[in-house]
Write a protein that binds this DNA or RNA. Structure first.
Lengths: 197, 197
DNA sequence: TGATAGTGTGAGCACTGTCAACATCCCTCG
DNA sequence: CGAGGGATGTTGACAGTGCTCACACTATCA
């Protein structure tokens, strides 16, 4: 829309993030996102992004931020308000599905060390956290929502990473089944209690 | 021991892996392991490692392989044969502890995409897998060992990653407490079953 | 004593993150 | 209206990276 020939870009920050997301989707997932590639894709000199992002990490953080939002959307789309354990399994599958289908983005979001302090990032993860907390509150009323919430998040997060690293089942089909039965196995503890200490 | 002035090194592959491990321990955890830095630390030209490792990934795989072994050792040291849920919590804490104390190594082991086919790597992860399977068999006899095993691994693995990414509690002290109570919360489901579908 | 295979060296390519100096544009103030 | 300043983009450069080649050295076996 905007004149492409303009010296100024118009909205380079957004364009960079968009370009980065596209590269993460397109490229093979093993390639690391390069700032120069982003600049190229945005049709701009390699150093231009530095006007808007302090360094590569800052760009990554911006990308991860929208990633968190899309993850939350994906989960909500799979099951907006899960109440039963079986629906929890659906959510787990959706989480792993997101990790698999958008592996590069997922790795950008969680794979490399980031500054935990960044308020943007914290705020963005809060969306996921809230979704999980909601889920736990509905599925397991009367439980320690905080503790169980982190446990549930950790469970699905761990499943996603193990799957990404090929440590679940090999066949992509049976992987989702593995996820489901892993979640079921945990919930089945509720029926045949273990020998408690 | 060997003459340092020798043109040939003696056992460069092992020296490379050792140097890599040292760099992962020493350096700040955000730095990515560079093959050139490994060569420098091993006192050798940048291209020397290529005689023994096809590429950087191959070196990484070798490093990860010993990492898996050390992780298994660390877990076994914390609790050689857990039988009670509380001991399972101990193991979870040990797992997260390993991830925190040796963050760079942990990230090298799990953080970046790797070839799932590599038989060395698969064999090495099998050690961890076996430990978890054992644990589950002892703690929860009569359960679906496979499914519950992956669930338990995923749970502790997810806890480790969330902690590494600063998504658990901020204070490092309370983090371990969070891990413990998260595990407890899951196990407590066995006592006050949720509304099952 | 050689030839040969294994191992380390050096130079070099393409790429990366990052910076400083310069160029261009838009907007505001006189 | 038109000059100046601040924002934004460009060029060029530096150090560091993975990786490959041609070469140098060394151990070993005929």
């Amino acid at each position: 829309m905007k004149p492409q020939t303009s010296y100024h870009h118009g909205d380079l920050p957004a364009a960079c993030v968009r370009a980065a997301l596209e590269l993460l989707e397109d490229g093979e997932p093993s390639a690391t996102l390069s700032l120069r590639a982003v600049a190229r894709r945005a049709g701009v000199a390699p150093s231009a992004p530095y006007r808007h992002f302090a360094d590569r990490d800052a760009l990554l953080t911006a990308v991860a931020t929208v990633g968190y939002g899309e993850l939350a959307e994906h989960l909500a789309a799979a099951c907006p308000a899960p109440t039963s354990p079986e629906e929890l399994a659906d959510v787990a599958v959706a989480y792993v599905e997101f990790a698999v289908k958008r592996a590069a983005l997922f790795r950008a979001m969680f794979g490399e060390p980031c500054d935990h302090e960044n308020p943007e990032r914290v705020a963005a993860t809060a969306v996921v956290k809230a979704y999980v907390a909601d889920l736990v509150g509905r599925c397991f009323p009367g439980s320690d929502a905080d503790a169980l919430g982190t446990a549930v998040w950790a469970l699905v997060h761990g499943l996603a990473f193990l799957e990404l690293d090929g440590k679940l089942d090999d066949a992509p089909d049976t992987a989702y089944a593995s996820v489901r039965s892993a979640v079921r196995a945990v919930l089945d503890l509720a029926r045949q209690p273990a020998g408690s200490s």
